[in-house]
Design a protein around this nucleic acid. Structure first.
Lengths: 173, 173
DNA sequence: GTAATTACCTTGACCTGTCAACGACTAACA
DNA sequence: TGTTAGTCGTTGACAGGTCAAGGTAATTAC
């Protein structure tokens, strides 16, 4: 290619904006970049979920995830939420604050360790969650509809493998 | 701080007696939630890439992606970047601005359509990209190391399937 | 010609995610 | 006690992503 791209004065000449066909890396269709694909997919899935939650009178996606964790009894304190979901503790702190303001959570000081606040869902939260669970379950079924049982298991196996190589790289050069 | 409000004083020992997990989503190991897994994976991969770029004197990840698209001649204008990568046009506008400020891009008005700015990488950008490409290529090989050729193809097939169900859901109800 | 519409890009507002510093508290130990 | 270290949570600062309105240029319709 060597076409040094410092030319000024673009003349056009290529009719209809036809991409000046360079031979650069045709091999690199953008869709072949794994991390790009994952990034785009995740953005779309986030938008899909946030849209569903909004249309059904729910809360923002990150709040929903925190509520679900509490609902499933996977955590009862902020630290446990951070541990189980690997969320940022600062983010969790602010989300919990807003959920309390919104009437979805109450916190109680914990006698055994006064640094800790035990978190409890309110009745309003239970109602909202029970209302949304069928919606989200339908979505989940929609997401897995293109997969057979076996494929779906394979997908999670692949995710496990990707997790194993997604940590910081010690590259030292 | 005036923070104490409802002091209820939990006695330790699971106080709840509530949370009757009726309707729960199931045996909920969090790791079985597809969208959660993807979200976490993507966050880790982002951090991994951003860390590599930082350590090797590069630019932020989103900037890197824009530069790569231009480097690969997959786009020559902002609109083409938006189309090919499905980035937000506002985000691209600001990234391009900063890349120009940083000396990595120059833009030229386009004679045939003065709304359009053709974008060109500077020599500094070429140097930076050529320096980082081996690093990023090693990373990519690292990421695919847990996969055979066939597995990797299957993974992309799965990603295609997920793309097909990741659009907005028309759910009425 | 002028007006309406469309296209490319910019800008502002807002939300989320990430990082680091900090305060409050507990624990360990002299 | 007093010191030190570790843990839970809060806060500030800031980059990144998303959404919508606006500005200017080009296109189409009178």
């Amino acid at each position: 290619m060597t076409d040094n791209q410092h030319e000024i004065n673009v003349e056009d000449g290529s009719p209809d904006g036809a991409q000046s066909g360079t031979d650069s890396l045709q091999a690199t269709d953008f869709s072949t970049f794994l991390t790009f694909r994952l990034s785009r997919l995740q953005a779309n899935l986030n938008a899909q979920a946030a849209d569903l939650l909004r249309r059904h009178g729910g809360v923002p996606l990150a709040h929903w995830r925190v509520l679900l964790i509490l609902f499933e009894n996977m955590a009862t304190t902020q630290k446990e939420i951070v541990d189980v979901a690997e969320f940022d503790k600062g983010q969790v702190s602010r989300i919990v604050e807003r959920l309390i303001d919104g009437g979805y959570l109450v916190s109680e000081s914990y006698n055994a360790d006064r640094r800790v606040r035990k978190l409890f869902l309110t009745e309003a939260a239970h109602q909202m969650i029970n209302r949304l669970i069928p919606v989200m379950r339908r979505r989940h079924q929609h997401l897995r509809s293109p997969f057979s049982e076996e494929d779906f298991a394979t997908l999670f196996d692949f995710l496990d493998r990707l997790d194993s190589v997604s940590t910081k790289i010690e590259d030292e050069t």
